[in-house]
Each structure stands twice: as C-alpha cells, then as structure tokens.
C-alpha cells in the first residue's frame, strides 16, 4: 500500500469503517456489515473523484477522512446513553479480545487465502506495480484493477478486525507492524510484518490483563512500540554498519 501510494486511502478506509460502525450504533444495523459498506463506499468514492476530477488522491482521501471522523463523532454524540454503554458500542469503539469468535477466525483465514490466491495469480503484475507504479502503467498493467482489489481486501480486513482493536485504533494494527520491519528487511517484510503484528496482539492482551487496560488500545500501543523499536534498531544497525565500513576503509 505504501509503495502504491495508497496509504492515506487506507487510513481513510479505516476511519470510514469507524464511521459506519458508529452509525450502526444509532441505526441498529449490523456493525461489521455497516462498517464494510462505509469503507468500500469511501474507497470507491475517492478513486472515482481522483480519476474524474484529477485532484490528488491524498487530498480527496484526507477530505473523506475528516468527513468520516465527523460522522463517527456525530453518531456517537447522538447515540442514546443506554446504547453507548452497551457492550456492542464498547466493542466497536474500544475493541476487545472477546470479539474474536470462531466465525471471525474463519473469515480471517478466508481473507488470507483470498490474498494468497490473488498474489500468486498476479505475481508478476503485482511485483511490477510494487517496483514502479508509473512504469507498470506505461507498460499496460491495469493499475486501477489491482489498486481496487487491494483496497477491497483492506476494507474487508478492517471490517473483520474492527471489534478487536476498536474503530479508533484499527489502522495502527495494519500499518505499524509492516513499517516496523520495513527498514530491517525489505524482502521479508510481509512475513516479519505478520509476526510483529501477532506479537503486538499477544503482548497487548497480556499487558491489558495485568494492568486492566482496554485491550484494543493496549494492542495498538504495543504495535506503536514495535514501530519505534523497529525504526531505532534499523538506525542503530545502519550506524554500526557505517562505522565498520569506516574502520575497514581506514585500515
């Protein structure tokens, strides 16, 4: 997503999901489905305006992000206090590990399999896009199609894990682990990112249990700490590598 320049759009999709989930509190609709509908609508709207108006995707994304956040806040404000204190509302906004049901695990596995099938089917085109979007486009690769597929998969992932981390923090679990390992290993980034994401989740649950803090926020905090550690350790490794190089050159 970062390489494709779709990061801001993902951030927007995550907040559109939050808006959808918040609206579901007052509209009494299924939260995940509403979140998914909102996130898909936001993604498609951004892409449509980007293609039609020629305005930068980032500008439209940030506009949609602000709009989504505003909808979320208004929906929360308008929700009856009884509903707001309900378990469902609490899960949507703040997240809970209890939201991980067998059905959700099946959905996540389905999502992972779908992603694997997609990546294996279009490996060369995806590699080409990740390497250089403009060059891939100049060579006739269908950039719009692949960007849309990736956004749809992201929207699905966000909708599924929404209740785990809560709407406010869902993006951190998608973004932080991947960026944490980016500078350490470009090639093994997908695998290491998944491992760091899993570790963040595990640590978050443990810390949350011992300190009685909200699970979603604690997992996000762990993911942020992982990101800081990843960036710091890669800088330290680079520093030592440069020092070794200087010593080698001077001798």
């Amino acid at each position: 997503m970062r390489r494709l320049g779709l990061l801001t759009l993902c951030f927007t999709v995550a907040h559109a999901a939050l808006a959808g989930a918040s609206v579901s509190i007052i509209a009494s609709t299924p939260p995940e489905e509403t979140a998914f509908a909102f996130s898909i609508t936001a993604a498609l709207l951004v892409e449509l305006l980007y293609r039609r108006l020629g305005v930068e995707r980032e500008v439209i994304s940030m506009c949609t992000f602000s709009f989504s956040s505003a909808i979320a806040m208004i929906a929360v404000y308008m929700a009856p206090s009884v509903t707001l204190t309900s378990e469902t509302a609490s899960l949507i906004l703040w997240g809970s590990v209890l939201a991980v049901t067998p059905a959700k695990i099946v959905l996540l596995v389905f999502l992972v399999v779908s992603l694997a099938v997609y990546v294996l089917s279009f490996k060369l085109e995806i590699d080409s896009l990740l390497f250089d979007v403009k060059l891939a486009e100049a060579e006739g690769v269908n950039v719009t199609l692949h960007a849309t597929i990736l956004i749809l998969l992201t929207a699905m992932a966000i909708s599924i894990i929404l209740k785990l981390t809560g709407g406010f923090l869902v993006f951190s679990l998608l973004f932080n682990p991947v960026v944490a390992v980016e500078r350490l290993s470009y090639r093994r980034q997908p695998l290491l990112g998944a491992l760091v994401g899993g570790l963040s989740g595990l640590l978050g649950v443990v810390v949350s249990y011992f300190f009685d803090t909200p699970v979603g926020a604690t997992i996000s905090m762990m993911a942020s700490i992982m990101l800081i550690l990843g960036v710091t350790s890669s800088s330290l490794l680079e520093y030592h590598r440069t020092r070794r190089m200087k010593t080698y050159v001077s001798t």
Binding site: L124, E125, D127, S128, F131, A136, E139, G140, V141, R183, Y186, R187
Partner: peptide, 16 residues
C-alpha cells in the same frame, strides 16, 4: 534499499 534483482526487474516488462 530496492531488493528486486536485475532478472526480476527485466522480467516485469512482460507482466502486462
């Protein structure tokens, strides 16, 4: 930091 090899980059020309 770009780790795609020369072989991979040239192969990408056939992606479309």
């Amino acid at each position: 930091r770009e780790t795609y090899t020369v072989m991979q980059v040239v192969s990408m020309g056939l992606a479309a």
